[in-house]
Every structure is written in structure tokens, then in C-alpha cells.
Amino acid sequence: MNSARRLGSGSLVIATHNSGKLKEISALLDPYGIKCISAGSLGLPEPAETGTTFVQNALLKARAAAEASGLAALADDSGLSVDALDGRPGVYTADWAERQWFEGTPGRDWYMAMGKVEGMLLQIGTDVDRSAAFHCVLAIAWPDGEHAVYEGTCAGSLTWPPRGELGFGYDPVFVPEGRSQTFAEIDPAEKHSISHRADAFAKLVAEQFGA
């Protein structure tokens, strides 16, 4: 159950070291008088994501930032779940893109990650259920321990081969429900209006800033 507390106008730490994510979240919260500061700009360390669910990892990151900064903090955790793979890659969505020592220079290879998913589906069979969903959890934590959690989902299915140049991650193989284009073929502004993150933010805004 969420705390009844609401965010007031003022500073909010965004538990990320990613400037792109900070910019995106700042734009969404700016109309409500919220000044967003990244954990990276404050020199806060990134906690190990040891949770087994999106909620656990989002709360872990938000609480760490709130305790270290003394301010309210917002964190997100997101990923792809594939029905036929029992919800995998799930919280390990980004990990599946990490190159191993024998796969070249360190970094993330999203084509490799997409290929890994496709290969596992083909092992099951050519008529495998290709249903999938992107999930996003937004967690707000206050320094005294109170918290609020908002979960968003975008259902769809997987396609192969990858299509489109506009997205990132698994976007080129994900077709949202009711559409024929992949996330990587859809205009970014339109994608952001139907995405899992948009769903989670709509719930956050309704509870935190609604009447």
C-alpha cells in the first residue's frame, strides 16, 4: 500500500546516472514544479540491483538515493517479460545484453540480446506463443522510509528479424498490442504516449498531483 504522502514542489533526486533518463523524467515532472537532480550529479553510488522483481529493484534504488541525499528520490526499473520463457528476461533484461569476456569489448550488445530471446523461442518450436510485455515500476522513497510504487505495462508480441532504427534495447523486435509496427518503427513521441513508462507515470501523476 502506498504512503498517503505527496511530493511537494521542490527538489527530487532521480536515482540514475543516465543523462537521457534524467532529461526524460525531468520533462514529465516539470509541469508540477519539481526540480529533478540526478544521483550521478550528487556523486551517489549506484547500489547493486539484487532484487528478484522490478518493484524490489526500483525500491532498492530509490531508498538508497533518499537515504544518501536526505531528499525524496524517484527510481525506475523496467524490462521485458516473454510469456513462453516464463517471464524472462525480466529483471535481467539489460544483463542479457552484457558481453561476456569472449564476446568482444565490454558493453551491451542489444542485437545479441534480441537474438538470445529469439533463439530460446525457436528451441521451443516454430508455433511458439510470442506474447510479451514491457514493464516499468516507478518508486518514490522519502528519507524517513515512506514509499510509493507505480507499475506500468505495455503488452504486445515479439517479431523477427528486428525492424526499425528509432528505438533502443529490445524495441526493434517488440510490436505493441493493436499495432503493426515495432517500437523502433514508431515515432518516439507516439511511443512515449503508449509505453510502459507512460502507463506508470500516468498513475504516479494521478496519485501525486491529482485533485
Results as ranks from 00 to 15, higher is better:
Arg6Thr: 14
Leu7Trp: 05
Gly8Asp: 13
Gly8Cys: 09
Gly8Ile: 05
Ser11Phe: 01
Ser11Pro: 05
Ser19Tyr: 02
Gly20Thr: 09
Lys21Ala: 11
Lys21Cys: 10
Lys21Met: 11
Ala27Thr: 05
Leu28Thr: 12
Leu29Asn: 02
Pro31Phe: 00
Tyr32Trp: 08
Ile37His: 00
Ala39Arg: 04
Gly40Ala: 09
Ser41Arg: 01
Leu42Asn: 05
Gly43Pro: 02
Leu44Trp: 04
Leu44Asp: 07
Glu46Thr: 15
Ala48Val: 15
Glu49Val: 10
Gln56Asn: 08
Gln56Pro: 04
Lys61Gln: 10
Ala65Asp: 11
Glu67Trp: 09
Leu71Glu: 11
Asp76Gln: 08
Asp77Tyr: 05
Ser81Thr: 13
Asp83Met: 02
Ala84Ile: 00
Asp86Ala: 14
Gly87Pro: 02
Val91His: 04
Arg99Gly: 12
Trp101Glu: 15
Trp101Pro: 15
Met112Ile: 09
Ala113Glu: 11
Gly115Thr: 11
Glu118Asp: 15
Glu118Gln: 15
Met120Gly: 01
Ile124Val: 12
Asp129Asn: 15
Arg130Ser: 02
Ser131Asn: 13
Ala132Trp: 00
Ala132Ser: 07
Phe134Trp: 14
Asp144Ala: 07
Val149Glu: 12
Tyr150Lys: 09
Glu151Leu: 01
Gly152Thr: 09
Thr153Ser: 13
Cys154Lys: 03
Ala155Asp: 13
Pro162Tyr: 01
Arg163Met: 02
Leu166Met: 13
Tyr170Val: 12
Asp171Leu: 05
Phe174Asn: 04
Glu177Gln: 14
Gly178Leu: 05
Gly178Val: 04
Ser180Val: 12
Gln181Trp: 00
Thr182Met: 01
Phe183Gln: 06
Glu185Tyr: 00
Ala189Cys: 07
Glu190Val: 14
Ser193Cys: 03
Ser193Thr: 10
His196Lys: 06
Ala198Thr: 07
Phe201Pro: 10
Ala202Trp: 01
Lys203Met: 08
Ala206Cys: 07
Glu207Thr: 14
Phe209Gly: 07
Ala211Cys: 11
